[in-house]
Design a protein around this nucleic acid. Structure first.
Length: 567
RNA sequence: CGGGGUUUAGCGCAGUUUGGUAGCGCACAUGGUUUGGGACCAUGGGGCCGGGGGUUCAAGUCCCUCAACCCCGACCA
């Protein structure tokens, strides 16, 4: 298309609201504009890329035998009420009423609706397995939308659901989706890793996330270079690193510790490492109050804790509750004399003669020992992994990195099919519950992730597969008839070859056109300048620094070849 | 939801301390000169200074209030 007729509102300056590269570039390159916090409009260039990403996903899903359909984003409440998620989602869900005061929501995800549809239509084992998907806008009223399209309130998601006769079938469907995801992300040019993930509120037996390594990612990944173990930090298992200290049990000793509350203050006061402390944290899990003990320098992994307790709400208890339970000011909680459940981290169970709070303001105990001085209700892995911890698989030091979650695959099992009675009849005419999986890809997030991984100081560097256009032709001087003649010739020939091509026919100075071409990141640029009269043009790849001189025909051939090789 | 910040032309910002009727750069329009990395000259258009209320002869500026947006945190398939 001719650039003079296109709607590409590029910005010279960086909008104040944009913090990260992808957000800044999506605004500057005229791909999108903000309507409200976490809500964006896609402009023509951005929408072209978005559709290409969708198409790649679509092709890879179809290749594995999944079938596309489309459901409404506006959904009646009853399905979510049946599964219990009307409550679970809480304020995250956009809710509304129709004129008859009936409850509706804007779909945050569609497990219930797919399950309901399949339940009504599928009756026999002969109709299974089935994988259905859609590419559709989802709505979540995020507490804090941020980083542009990375965490927004309206976003496009490819969500797929598999229905199988049994676990074995689920494993196969899961593998199909795994393959489709790998191929789709490869084609988008994303550098990603697959990590084990927690199944969380979704329930189910297994889950993996596709993470694009990036400093702006909100997820933390723990991985091992030695054996390939990779998990997100919620899921990563922690194994105790230090063996039981070979030391006699010393007698318990109460120590006066006025105004010594935090672990830092305790470290100073006792003059020893925080590894010799066990901190006792009071949590509120739904209506129950529990104590959790981890080593002084560790953090509680609330996901692990939540899974262990099977609760919906989990938060640190407020100061009032802590005082009531421990009979002491915050900062002096300890396990001795508490009459609530005491959940102890594996590592603490390995400690000897350690320091704990005394449940009395201004006092701690020295030389505490589990078993002798107090009893643990449960000993479990409850802490958060940190860089340098031993890999749970091979023992090598773990590394951590941040990542953008672009895809998530789940073995749901029968959670939803049971709740909604989604069943089929097997060969024996016996009723069985279907076994489900669900699989999501954040389409807009993929777009932002591609930009995060493919840009420089001048703008976006689109991979050919998702570039809004493949080639941009830049005649330096539009008043020069020779230049324009050649530009038109190349334009037409590339179009005839099926290449998506832009012709920058604006009567602008060359600098402006070059800056715009770089900013919007078109993979191939053909510049027609002074040597046009000799039939020589300039051929430049966006990702390369230098341009090459070619004849008109060579430049056309090179462009066609390059695009075909990289699609 | 807690803490901090911002809101003045399409974008980026100054002006608020000390109240006196709104400004700069870019962008836009017209004419001209220019044409290899965001040109130059001239002319011009565009703002209920986030909303509401108050103080005052007079409010972008002071007071009260509401809101939107951004950042940090908490939270999150």
């Amino acid at each position: 298309m001719r650039v003079s007729q296109m709607f590409i509102p590029t910005l010279r300056e960086v909008p104040a609201e944009a913090e990260i590269a992808s957000h800044q570039l999506m605004l500057r390159a005229g791909l999108m504009r903000k309507l409200a916090a976490g809500i964006y409009s896609y402009l023509p260039l951005g929408y072209r890329t978005l559709r290409k990403i969708e198409q790649i996903i679509r092709e890879e899903m179809d290749r594995e035998g999944a079938q596309e359909l489309l459901m409404s984003a506006l959904l009646p409440a009853e399905y979510y009420q049946q599964s219990g998620r009307w409550e679970v989602f809480g304020p995250e869900m956009f809710r509304l009423k129709d004129r008859h005061e009936r409850n509706f929501c804007l779909g945050p995800t569609h497990e219930e609706i797919f399950t309901e549809t399949v339940k009504n239509e599928v009756k026999s084992y002969r109709q299974l397995p089935l994988i259905l998907y859609q590419i559709q806008t989802k709505y979540r009223d995020e507490r804090r939308p941020r980083f542009g399209v990375m965490r927004s309130r309206e976003f496009i998601m490819k969500d797929a659901y598999s229905f199988d006769r049994d676990e074995k079938g689920l494993d196969e469907s899961y593998q199909k989706m795994y393959r489709a995801y790998c191929k789709a992300f490869d084609r988008m040019g994303l550098d990603y890793i697959v990590v084990d993930a927690d199944t969380g509120a979704m329930g189910g037996s297994g889950s993996q996330e596709f993470m694009v390594k990036s400093d702006v990612g909100e997820g933390v990944i723990a991985f091992c270079d030695a054996c390939g173990y990779a998990a997100n930090d919620e899921k990563a298992r922690c194994v105790p690193q230090e063996a039981l200290r070979d030391e006699e049990n010393k007698p318990l000793e109460k120590v006066r510790t006025p105004d010594v509350k935090t672990i830092e203050e305790l470290t100073d006061f006792f003059g020893c490492s925080p590894k010799l402390f066990a901190k006792t944290l009071i949590y509120k899990a739904d209506d129950k109050v529990v104590a959790v003990m981890v080593r002084g320098d560790r953090d509680v992994n609330e996901t692990k804790l939540q899974n262990l307790l099977g609760c919906i709400e989990l938060e640190m208890a407020d100061a009032h509750t802590v005082r009531e339970i421990t009979k002491a000011e915050v900062g002096f909680a300890g396990p001795i004399g508490l009459d609530i459940d005491i959940l102890v981290d594996l590592e603490v169970a390995n400690m000897k003669n350690f320091i704990i709070g005394a449940n009395e303001t201004g006092f701690h105990y020295k030389n505490a020992n589990i078993g002798r001085d107090f009893k643990a209700t449960m000993v479990e892995d409850l802490r958060k992994i940190v860089e340098g911890d031993a890999c749970p698989q091979c023992g090598h030091p773990i590394k951590t990195a941040q990542g953008i979650e672009v895809g998530h695959i789940f073995k749901l099992g029968t959670k939803y099919s049971k709740a909604l009675q989604c069943t089929y009849l097997d060969e024996n005419g016996k009723e069985q519950v279907m076994v489900m999986g669900c699989y999501g890809i954040g389409v807009n997030r993929c777009m932002a992730a591609v930009i995060e991984q493919n840009h420089d100081e001048n703008g976006i560097i689109w991979p050919v597969s998702v570039a809004p256009y493949h080639v941009i032709i830049v005649p330096v001087n539009t008043n020069d008839e020779v230049q324009m003649g050649i530009a038109e010739e190349i334009y037409k020939k590339l179009q005839d070859a099926g290449i998506e091509v832009m012709l920058d026919d604006r009567n602008e100075r060359p600098g402006v056109k070059f800056k715009d071409a770089d900013l919007i990141g078109i993979p191939v640029r053909i510049t027609i300048g002074k040597k046009a009269k000799d039939g020589i043009v300039e051929y430049k790849l966006r990702k390369e620094k230098e341009a090459e001189e070619k004849t008109v025909q060579e430049s056309i051939d090179s462009a066609v070849q390059y695009i075909r090789d990289n699609l």
